Deep mutational scan, measured.
Amino acid sequence: PQEEYKKRAKKALKKGDEDTAREALKRAGLSPDQAEEFIRRFL
C-alpha cells in the first residue's frame, strides 16, 4: 500500500539514499514532481 512505500522512502532518506526514496515514491503512485516535493519536505 501507499503508506508502506512512503515509510520506506522516509527510511531511505534518513540514510541519505534519495534514489531508493524516489523509487519507493514512484511505486506509491506519486508523480516525479510529487516525489521531489515529498523529498524536499523531508530533508
Score class of each variant (00 low, 15 high):
Lys7Ser: 09
Ile39Gly: 00
Glu4Arg: 10
Pro32Thr: 11
Glu3Leu: 08
Leu25His: 00
Lys10Leu: 15
Glu36Arg: 05
Ala24Thr: 07
Thr20Lys: 10
Ala35His: 01
Lys14Glu: 15
Lys15Asp: 15
Pro1Arg: 14
Lys10Gly: 06
Ala35Thr: 11
Glu4Phe: 14
Glu23Ile: 09
Pro32Tyr: 10
Glu37Pro: 00
Arg40Lys: 10
Arg27Cys: 09
Ala24Gly: 03
Lys10Thr: 12
Ala35Glu: 06
Arg41Val: 11
Ala28Cys: 04
Leu30Lys: 01
Lys6Met: 15
Arg41Pro: 03
Tyr5Ile: 04
Leu43Cys: 10
Gln2Met: 13
Leu13Lys: 01
Lys7Gln: 12
Asp19Tyr: 10
Lys14Gly: 09
Arg8Thr: 12
Lys11Glu: 15
Arg8Cys: 09
Lys7Ile: 12
Gln34Tyr: 05
Lys15Pro: 01
Leu25Ile: 02
Asp17Pro: 00
Lys15Arg: 14
Glu3Arg: 10
Leu13Glu: 00
Glu3Asn: 10
Ile39Ala: 01
Ala28Leu: 06
Asp17Arg: 06
Arg22Phe: 05
Ala9Phe: 03
Asp19Ile: 12
Gln2His: 10
Arg8Tyr: 12
Lys11Ala: 15
Tyr5Gln: 07
Lys14Cys: 12
Leu43Arg: 13
Lys11Gln: 14
Leu13Cys: 04
Glu18Thr: 14
Arg27His: 13
Arg22Asp: 01
Ile39Asp: 00
Glu36Asn: 09
Lys6Leu: 15
Ala9Pro: 02
Phe38Lys: 01
Leu43Asp: 05
Glu18Cys: 06
Lys11Thr: 12
Lys6Ser: 06
Glu3Trp: 12
Lys26Val: 09
Pro32Ala: 12
Ala35Ile: 15
Ala24Trp: 15
Ala12Phe: 07
Arg8Pro: 02
Glu4Trp: 14
Ala35Met: 11
Lys14Ile: 13
Ile39Lys: 01
Leu43Gln: 11
Lys6Arg: 10
Arg40His: 09
Lys7Ala: 13
Arg22His: 05
Phe42Asn: 06
Ala21Glu: 00
Arg27Ser: 12
Glu3Gly: 08
Glu4Met: 12
Pro1Ala: 14
Ala28Thr: 04
Pro1Cys: 05
Lys15Asn: 14
Leu25Arg: 00
Gly29Ser: 03
Leu13Gln: 01
Asp17Asn: 06
Ile39Gln: 00
Glu4Gly: 08
Asp17Glu: 06
Lys11Met: 13
Gly29Asp: 03
Phe38Gln: 02
Ala24Val: 14
Glu23Gln: 08
Ala28Ile: 04
Arg22Val: 04
Asp17Lys: 05
Ala24Arg: 03
Arg41Thr: 12
Glu37Leu: 07
Ser31Met: 06
Gln34Met: 07
Ile39Glu: 00
Glu4Ile: 11
Pro1Trp: 15
Glu4Ser: 09
Pro32His: 10
Ala12Pro: 02
Gly16Ile: 02
Lys6His: 07
Lys15Ala: 14
Tyr5Trp: 15
Arg22Trp: 05
Lys15Ser: 13
Ala12Glu: 03
Lys11His: 13
Leu25Met: 03
Gly16Gln: 04
Tyr5Gly: 06
Glu4Lys: 11
Ala35Arg: 06
Ala12Arg: 03
Glu18Ala: 12
Arg40Trp: 09
Glu23Phe: 04
Lys14Leu: 15
Tyr5Asn: 06
Lys14Gln: 14
Glu23Met: 07
Gln2Cys: 10
Lys15Phe: 09
Leu13Ser: 01
Gly16Asp: 03
Gln2Pro: 11
Gln34Ile: 05
Asp33His: 09
Ala21Gly: 03
Arg27Tyr: 10
Leu13Pro: 01
Leu25Ser: 00
Ala28Met: 06
Glu4Leu: 12
Glu37His: 07
Gly29Asn: 04
Ala21Tyr: 02
Asp33Gly: 09
Pro1Met: 15
Gly29Leu: 04
Glu3Phe: 08
Arg8Lys: 14
Glu23Arg: 09
Glu23Leu: 07
Gln2Thr: 11
Leu43Lys: 13
Asp17Ala: 05
Asp17Thr: 02
Glu3Pro: 06
Pro1Asn: 14
Ala21Arg: 00
Thr20Glu: 13
Ala12Gln: 03
Leu43Ala: 09
Gln34Ser: 06
Ile39Arg: 00
Glu18Ile: 15
Glu36His: 05
Thr20Gln: 09
Ala35Leu: 09
Lys26Gly: 08
Gly16Phe: 04
Leu43Met: 09
Lys15Ile: 13
Lys26Thr: 09
Arg40Ser: 08
Ser31Leu: 07
Glu3Lys: 10
Asp33Arg: 09
Lys7Val: 09
Gln34Arg: 05
Glu23Asp: 10
Gln2Glu: 13
Arg41Ile: 11
Leu30Ile: 04
Lys11Asp: 15
Ala35Gly: 03
Ala9Tyr: 02
Pro32Ser: 11
Gly29Ala: 03
Lys26His: 11
Asp33Tyr: 09
Leu43Ser: 09
Asp33Ile: 11
Phe42Met: 06
Leu43Val: 08
Asp33Leu: 11
Arg40Ala: 10
Glu23Pro: 00
Lys15Trp: 08
Glu4Cys: 08
Glu37Gly: 05
Glu4Asn: 11
Gln2Leu: 12
Glu4Pro: 06
Lys14Ser: 13
Ala12Asp: 03
Lys10Glu: 15
Arg8Gln: 15
Lys11Ile: 14
Lys26Ile: 11
Ala24Pro: 00
Glu36Leu: 06
Ala21Met: 02
Ala28Tyr: 05
Lys10Tyr: 14
Glu4Gln: 09
Asp33Asn: 08
Arg41Gly: 08
Gln2Asp: 10
Arg41Asp: 12
Lys11Leu: 14
Lys11Pro: 00
Phe42Val: 08
Asp17Leu: 06
Ser31Ile: 03
Gly16Trp: 03
Asp17His: 06
Tyr5Ser: 05
Gln2Trp: 12
Ala28Val: 04
Phe38Leu: 04
Glu37Gln: 08
Gln34Asn: 05
Ala12Met: 05
Gly16Glu: 03
Gln34Pro: 00
Ala24Met: 15
Arg41Glu: 13
Ala12Ser: 05
Lys7Met: 11
Ala35Phe: 04
Phe42Glu: 07
Leu30Cys: 06
Lys15Val: 13
Arg8Gly: 05
Phe38Asn: 00
Gly29Gln: 04
Glu18Asn: 08
Pro32Cys: 05
Arg27Lys: 14
Leu43His: 11
